[in-house]
Amino acid sequence: MAQDNIYATEQTQVAPFSFDEEVVAVFPDMIERSVPGYTLLLPLIGQIASRYAQPHSRCYDLGCSLGAVMLALRQQIKQEGCRITAVDNAPAMIEKCRKILAQTGGTVPVDLVEADISEVPIEQASVVVLNFTLQFLPPAQRDTLIQRIYDGLLPGGVLILSEKVIFEPVELDNLLVRLHHDFKRANGYSELEISQKRTALENVLISETIPQHQKRLRQAGFASVDVWFQAFNFVSLLAKK
Rank of each mutant, 00 (worst) to 15 (best):
S118Y: 06
L40Y: 05
L66Q: 06
D88G: 12
T104S: 13
Y38E: 06
P28K: 05
V128Y: 03
H56I: 01
A92L: 06
C64Q: 03
S18L: 08
A68Y: 13
Q79E: 15
G37H: 09
R51E: 11
S118H: 13
K78G: 01
A86L: 02
K99D: 12
A68W: 09
C64R: 04
L44F: 10
F132Y: 15
T85C: 09
T85Y: 12
V129L: 07
P121Y: 04
P36L: 05
P121F: 08
A49D: 11
L112W: 02
A49E: 12
Y38V: 11
I117M: 15
E95F: 05
D111M: 04
P91I: 05
D88Y: 10
A53K: 09
L44E: 09
E32G: 03
G105Y: 05
Y52I: 03
L71A: 09
V110R: 07
Q79G: 11
Y52D: 09
L130C: 15
G37Y: 12
A53F: 09
K78I: 10
E114W: 02
P36F: 10
I48G: 03
L71H: 13
L71E: 07
L112P: 12
Y38C: 10
N89T: 01
M30V: 05
I100V: 13
G46K: 07
Q47H: 10
N89I: 10
D111E: 15
F27I: 08
E123C: 07
N89W: 04
A115P: 11
L42C: 10
H56T: 06
L44S: 06
F27T: 08
I100M: 11
V129T: 15
T39Y: 00
V120I: 15
E32N: 12
I45F: 11
Q103F: 04
I77A: 04
A102P: 06
L41T: 00
V35G: 02
L71T: 01
D61F: 04
E80T: 14
F132Q: 14
P28D: 04
I45K: 04
V87S: 00
F19Y: 12
R74Y: 07
S65Y: 00
M93L: 09
R33I: 02
R58K: 11
F27C: 07
P43I: 03
V127A: 08
Q76G: 10
V129G: 08
I117N: 02
D88M: 11
L66I: 06
K96E: 14
L44Y: 11
P109V: 08
D88R: 02
D116Y: 06
I84V: 02
Q103W: 00
I122M: 12
A68M: 13
E114Y: 02
V129E: 06
